[in-house]
Design a protein around this nucleic acid. Structure first.
Length: 206
DNA sequence: TAGGCCATCTGGTCCT
DNA sequence: AGGACCAGATGGCCTA
């Protein structure tokens, strides 16, 4: 886990992001989400393949996409490629031919629909991460947790909560005790890697 | 400028 | 057959 930025001396008015605050992109993401929902509806109406019937666009061709050179995604959809006559090798010709096939409108429409679905899926994952960030303890002005840090801290937090439950102690005194005595217990290893007790010391337990 | 993080596109695989 | 899920590739942004 990378170092977590935290400076107790830091002026609260500085521009360090606090995870509890609204993500500056949140509003934009919501708008994008709405847009994607609309697009999904539209793309559902489009139904890329149905609009072209059940007949394959490539009746004679079984495209071997894995054989294609990995063109930089999103930068060459195949439609911009010049028909150079310099490459005579059959393999090269086959590749170019395949790229041209991929540039056919039905494929592009289906791909575009898949991209929209994928973006929507990632948005839902990200919103779940946002929700999770709100449930893990952080320092008051700690930098917004990355996804991987959020997951690791959540795991550590759950482990600590389980220990507190098993101990039957008061949570605050349990954390205080851990801070005082250090990490003698091997079972603490799971959660003490995240400075969790230090973070928890900032929680108002009442 | 390098490295971390992230969004996006993409093709393959699995599932319904 | 089509959608969900996944991982790789890529480029942009930000920070030390």
């Amino acid at each position: 886990m990378e170092d977590v930025f935290f400076d107790f001396e830091q002026d609260p008015t500085t521009n360090f992001a606090f995870w509890g605050q609204m993500d500056p992109n949140f509003q934009f993401q919501n708008q994008l989400d709405t847009l994607l929902l609309d697009c999904t509806t539209v793309s559902g109406q489009l139904s890329p393949w149905s609009s072209f019937g059940s007949q394959s666009v490539f009746p004679d061709e079984q495209l071997t996409l894995t054989d294609l050179d990995s063109q930089s995604p999103g930068h060459d959809d195949g439609g911009t490629e010049a028909d150079s006559s310099s490459a005579d090798e059959p393999a090269e010709i086959s590749k170019r031919r395949a790229r041209r096939m991929l540039a056919h409108p039905p494929y592009k429409i289906q791909r575009h629909a898949a991209n929209i679905r994928e973006r929507k899926r990632m948005l839902s994952i990200n919103s779940a991460f946002e929700e999770l960030r709100c449930h893990v303890p952080t320092f008051p002005y700690e930098k917004r947790l990355s996804k991987i840090d959020t997951l690791r801290l959540a795991i550590a937090y759950i482990a600590l909560l389980r220990e507190i439950l098993m101990s039957g102690c008061d949570p605050k005194s349990y954390v205080d005790e851990c801070m005082k005595n250090g990490y003698k217990n091997q079972t603490n290893a799971i959660w003490n890697t995240s400075d969790l007790t230090a973070r928890l010391s900032w929680i108002k337990w009442d």
